[in-house]
């Protein structure tokens, strides 16, 4: 540890650490939601590829062209499915006494921490596929601009409501007396 840390008024070792067992995983069904919404994108891409071949009169060997169009998109799709499923367990959140932490990312991992006393407001969001699986996303806004806003996806309806209440309660307490 370098000298900057030794000059701090508190010892770093006495501050609470982030341990992996604080973390909660999100609902398993959210994986289905991401796969379905991705599949729509790839399906459109595939239809586009097929149309491109179908409406083109200059192609000598249509079978090969179809194969290439469907094959390449299919390959990307498969890759996407594997990647999304692998990355899914990395989506985790932790609630501590005074902050919320969310981690994500397989190749490029990100861990975002937001103290409750910096939260501006909290929102529950539900897309069409999330509604099918009765899931909610919790959006947390700070004054730090769009890139610092946090979205915790894949929460069951009651869990999401509970989290929202919890955070709102905390932000109210931490508000400086004015």
């Amino acid at each position: 540890m370098n000298e900057s840390f030794e000059n701090l008024p508190v010892s770093i070792d006495t501050l609470p650490e982030l341990t992996p067992n604080n973390f909660n995983t999100i609902e398993r069904t959210y994986l289905k939601v991401s796969l379905i919404s991705n599949s729509i994108f790839f399906a459109i891409l595939m239809i586009g590829g097929i149309c491109l071949v179908y409406f083109n009169d200059d192609i000598d060997r249509p079978l090969l062209a179809y194969g290439l169009a469907i094959g390449s998109v299919g390959f990307l799709w498969l890759f996407n499915i594997i990647f999304v499923s692998k990355a899914f367990p990395k989506k985790q959140y932790a609630l501590r006494a005074r902050d919320i932490i969310y981690t994500k990312g397989l190749l490029w991992s990100t861990r975002t921490s937001i103290p409750f006393n910096r939260i501006q407001h909290v929102e529950l969001k539900q897309g069409p596929f999330e509604r099918m699986f009765k899931l909610n996303s919790l959006k947390i806004f700070t004054a730090g601009g769009q890139t610092s806003d946090l979205v915790v996806p894949g929460l069951s309806e009651e869990k999401a409501l509970q989290l929202k209440e919890f955070i709102l309660g905390k932000t109210a307490i931490d508000e400086p007396a004015s």
Binding site: M1, N2, F5, L8, V10, I12, L15, P16, E17, L18, R98, D99, S113, P115, F116, N117, R118, D174
Partner: peptide
């Protein structure tokens, strides 16, 4: 290590 220590200190300070 430095990054995590700094993260811990900043969170402590803000909170």
């Amino acid at each position: 290590n430095t990054a995590e220590s700094l993260e811990r200190y900043i969170l402590y300070k803000v909170e």
